[in-house]
Design a protein around this nucleic acid. Structure first.
Lengths: 178, 178
DNA sequence: GAGAAATGATTAACGTATTTACTATCTCTC
DNA sequence: GAGAGATAGTAAATACGTTAATCATTTCTC
């Protein structure tokens, strides 16, 4: 057994390796590769997100969620809260809560819908629009720092593989946010 | 312009494509591929996680975070809360809060540390151990359903690319959880 | 070896997301 | 066109995470 394990080096990322090893040797689990793929996917996503949030958005007074809402409104807006919820992957209530401070800060605008008395349209104000252009520039630069360790071809392969992973999801009855 | 956009088909996943298109045509952002890579990474991770949580863990009365804590304790335990926090990627306070119900349910055990009067060791109880074996079997089966749309080679490439993405992170001063 | 600083775990205060319940409007059916 | 049911948005209750403050112990320094 000796110093087969080196706990001193073990951290959030290298835990994946330990898990893989332990699942292989201690327990006879069939699908170790599946675990490795999805653990890696998860932790990579968490690391990048955490970094972007704390380096770009928090210093400007925005949470990751607020940014996401502004982002979809910027690119797909004006849109109803319902649609914003689908596109951001959060609940309608979350959109409603997040909008409040953004409207108060003059970034977002809430106007009554045209044909439906219940509905509302979210759009960026002029100020919100300018803010997003500046904000996304910083965001995009940091994204580039992350991805530039991969060649363009590697990046395209990565996107392609993730697309394949996700778009075949209808092969089984997966759970989605209602 | 015509029906260039088809909002009817737009959802959480296909928004990536819309974002890519809009950033390319409307705004002259330099690093569209970076955005596409990281949006894809993020959303893929979210979809898989949401599915695993709602299909496997919630029905058994566990949150995603509880599962993660049990998982690292299972594979790397017994360990101190501090180390569990690093390995799960959450705060020490979260570990402390999550432990409480798990101890109460008889899955987790909290024993005083050997050499240090302040410290504590978290470990699975016998019952917790048996539970994890059953639970992880279900988890692993579902993971397999997800990943099996990729060939083994594709899976290895995916892991390799994500590893490359992350392990070069020390090239710039990224933000990590303290 | 006594006092100061540091460290581990917990608690308290707070922010933010989710689910559930509610209100208003719209649509469908007869 | 009146009533049942569906839908949009919000509000209330709840769950769960974070950071900051607290307590106990340990380590460092003189």
């Amino acid at each position: 057994m000796a110093d087969e394990e080196r706990p001193a080096e073990l951290d959030f990322w290298s835990f994946i390796e330990l898990a893989h090893r332990r699942l292989a040797t201690e327990y006879g689990f069939r699908h170790q590769l599946a675990t490795e793929v999805l653990l890696t996917l998860n932790r990579a996503s968490d690391l990048v997100t955490y970094d972007l949030e704390s380096a770009v958005h928090r210093p400007r007074g925005l949470s990751w969620s607020s940014f996401r809402l502004l982002f979809v409104t910027w690119l797909a807006g004006p849109l109803e809260p319902k649609r914003a919820a689908v596109l951001t992957g959060m609940s309608r209530a979350a959109v409603s809560n997040l909008s409040k401070p953004l409207v108060a800060d003059g970034l977002l605008e809430r106007s009554p819908g045209e044909h439906d008395g219940r509905s509302v349209l979210l759009s960026l104000t002029e100020h919100g629009h300018r803010t997003m252009e500046e904000l996304f520039r910083a965001h995009n630069e940091r994204e580039y720092q992350w991805t530039s360790v991969l060649s363009e071809t590697e990046q395209r392969i990565l996107v392609m593989l993730l697309n394949k992973l996700i778009t075949n999801r209808d092969q089984f009855d997966l759970r989605e946010r209602s």
